[in-house]
Structures are given as C-alpha cells and as structure tokens.
C-alpha cells in the first residue's frame, strides 16, 4: 500500500448496480479508493468489468447505487448529479481515461504534440511555446523521442500509441486515472515496458488508478488492491498479493490456477 494515502477516500462506490433490461451488467459493487491507491478489477469477459468502469467514470448511469468523488476543493459529490459541463471538466483535468485501443483515446488526425497539448488548450493555455515544451517533456517521460512530436499517431507503433495516450491523459496532473485493459493487444516485451512505465508514473505522481484487466500479471504488477468480478458481482476483494497467493473463492482459485507457468 502506498503511503501517499490520506484519510478520506477519493472515490466511493456504493451498491453500484446496472441492469441491461433483464440482464445484469453489474450488481451491488461497493468499494473505497484512496488517493494514490491502485485498484485492479479482474474477471473474465462478460463479468461486468467494463460496465463497472463506465459507471464509475460517469459515462453510464447506474440502475441503483451511487458513485461519490472527492473533488479538488475537498467537497465529495455524487458524480451522477454533476452537470455535463462539470463532468467534462473533470474528464479533462482531474481524471484520465486510458482506452484499450489507443485509437479511441487519441486524435489520429493531428500530431502527437497536439494530442498531448489538447487538454492544456482546453483548460486555457494560450502560449504555443509553453504548450510545446510541456508536450515535449511528457513525450520524454513516456519514452517517446521528442523529435517525433510532429508526427501523427498513425505513424506510431502500438506500444508508442499507448504511451502517447498515457501522456495525453497525465499532462493536466489528474488525481484519478481509469484504465481499460491498458496492455491489451500488445506483445509481451512491449507490455512489460509499458507496465514498468505506468508503475513508475503512478508512484511518482501519487496517482490513484482503477485498472480493468483480465491479465492477473498486470494486476499483480500495478495494483495494491484487487477486486475479482464474476457474473456482475464482486466476489472477492483484498490486497493483491493476498488474493493472488491465497485465493479464497473457488472462482478466484480457478483464475489463479489458469495462469500458464513458463
């Protein structure tokens, strides 16, 4: 556990439930996330991981329950009651969202520098030189050669795109980052490098993160705590090492034993 935590939770989920008609998206999920803490949500496809992430980030309205977020001014608010303008403002300042497919999180038609600078310009930066310097700094931080700042993401490899997406999200120093399968579709060596990078950034910046993944290795490397989902319910939660080394639920035991041992 990180020592950057303070006493009040950053994000609180209370009996968050979502029905798609008669089917269950997720049911009665509740947890507290503290500043600087990384929570992994694991489970197989269709277990409600992505639904949960959308509910937590306010992109989907829950059928029941609520999600509370402590804003920068210290006031805790129900994210459903935020106006569209406030929610968007959160999304370009205090929150980040890293998509599995970098194409969804990037503007593929504009240069890498503009991708990183977009959030800065959205919050009122109007000095080209400063925006560019900041973009260069961030490209270097995510190990992209600053000389490629004027290239479009289409010219980037998959791993670079994912790193660019991370830089674009972190440039406004968010406090909470949502990640949806951040390493999906990358080969293992690129995955390892990306995980290393994310782990370093999370520790340096004191970020809180909610990482959805079906890859237990990702959960083990990145997260402090883990939430195991099955059929829309959170069946087991606890410290990552504890849950992965000594799983209590039969399903979690199955998940852990399904990992190939090289």
């Amino acid at each position: 556990m990180s020592n950057a935590m303070t006493d009040a939770p950053l994000l609180t989920a209370e009996t968050v439930t979502k029905f798609y008609g008669a089917r269950i998206g997720c049911r009665d999920v509740g947890f507290e996330l503290y500043p600087g803490e990384v929570l992994a949500v694991v489970g197989e496809s269709g277990s409600g991981k992505s639904t949960l992430l959308k509910l937590l980030s306010g992109q989907l309205a829950p059928s029941d329950g609520r999600v509370l977020y402590r804003m920068r001014d210290g006031v805790t608010r129900d994210i459903l009651t935020l106006s569209e303008a406030e929610r968007r403002f959160l999304f370009r300042t205090d929150w980040g969202f890293v998509h599995q497919h970098a194409e969804q999180g990037l503007r593929m038609g504009v240069s890498a520098g503009a991708n990183v600078g977009e959030r800065l310009m959205a919050v009122g930066w109007r000095h080209y030189g400063k925006i560019r310097t900041e973009a260069e700094t961030w490209l270097e931080r995510v190990e992209i050669d600053a000389g490629r700042i004027d290239e479009r993401p289409t010219a980037y490899s998959g791993g670079m795109r994912q790193r660019l997406q991370i830089a674009r999200n972190l440039v406004t120093a968010p406090r909470l980052v949502f990640m949806d399968e951040p390493t999906g579709g990358l080969d293992v060596s690129v995955q390892a490098r990306l995980l290393d990078l994310v782990r370093g950034l999370v520790a340096d910046l004191g970020l809180a993160a909610i990482v959805v993944t079906h890859d237990l290795a990702v959960a083990r490397l990145l997260s402090h705590r883990i939430l195991v989902m099955k059929d829309g319910r959170a069946i087991e939660t606890g410290l990552t090492d504890q849950v992965l080394d000594d799983p209590r639920e039969p399903y979690t035991q199955l998940l852990v034993s399904s990992i190939l041992q090289p």
Binding site: R92, V110, S111, A114, G117, E118, M121, A122, V123, I131
Partner: peptide, 10 residues
C-alpha cells in the same frame, strides 16, 4: 473550445 486551438497548434 480547446479543440479549435488544436487546429491552430497543428
């Protein structure tokens, strides 16, 4: 309107 400045940045 941040996007408008993205165009000028480009």
């Amino acid at each position: 309107y941040g996007l408008m400045h993205v165009k000028l940045y480009e």
